[in-house]
């Protein structure tokens, strides 16, 4: 089972290396911001950490940890996508005003 996960990890890593090649310099920050939002995928892990069997009582620690994890990860996801969109919106509008060809 674990070896399959390692397999997935290696293939996805190679894909990531190939995905980004020539990026115009104005897009460096938006690309960073956009991929930062994707790393918020850990929200799925946070939600799943609150799933499964809870032993009756004495699970306060897990609930606190899980809820905080969901909270932080959601900030990353929502904030990340919104701020990226804001960056890109001013990028495209500035371009339209600047040179119209």
């Amino acid at each position: 089972m674990e070896i399959m996960l390692v397999f997935v990890l290696i293939l996805a890593s190679f894909l990531g290396f190939e995905l980004i090649s020539k990026v115009p310099s104005q897009l460096h920050t938006p690309l960073m911001s956009g991929s930062n939002a994707i790393s918020g995928i850990t929200v799925v892990g946070a939600i799943l950490s609150l799933a499964g069997t809870f032993v009756a009582g004495g699970e306060t620690a897990r609930i606190v940890l899980g809820t905080l994890a969901v909270f932080f990860a959601t900030i990353n996801v929502v904030g990340g996508y919104m701020v990226t969109d804001r960056m890109l919106s001013m990028f495209t509008s500035a371009k339209k005003e600047g040179k119209h060809d």
Partner: peptide, 30 residues
């Protein structure tokens, strides 16, 4: 991204591993 990827191993979730690895490796290139 790598942290998310590692978290994916902890809870055995493919989507975390894939997305985390994508961000991790493309982040190095960037």
């Amino acid at each position: 991204g790598m942290a998310a990827c590692a978290a994916g191993f902890v809870i055995t979730s493919n989507v975390l591993i894939v997305a985390g690895a994508l961000v991790g490796s493309s982040g190095i290139i960037l």
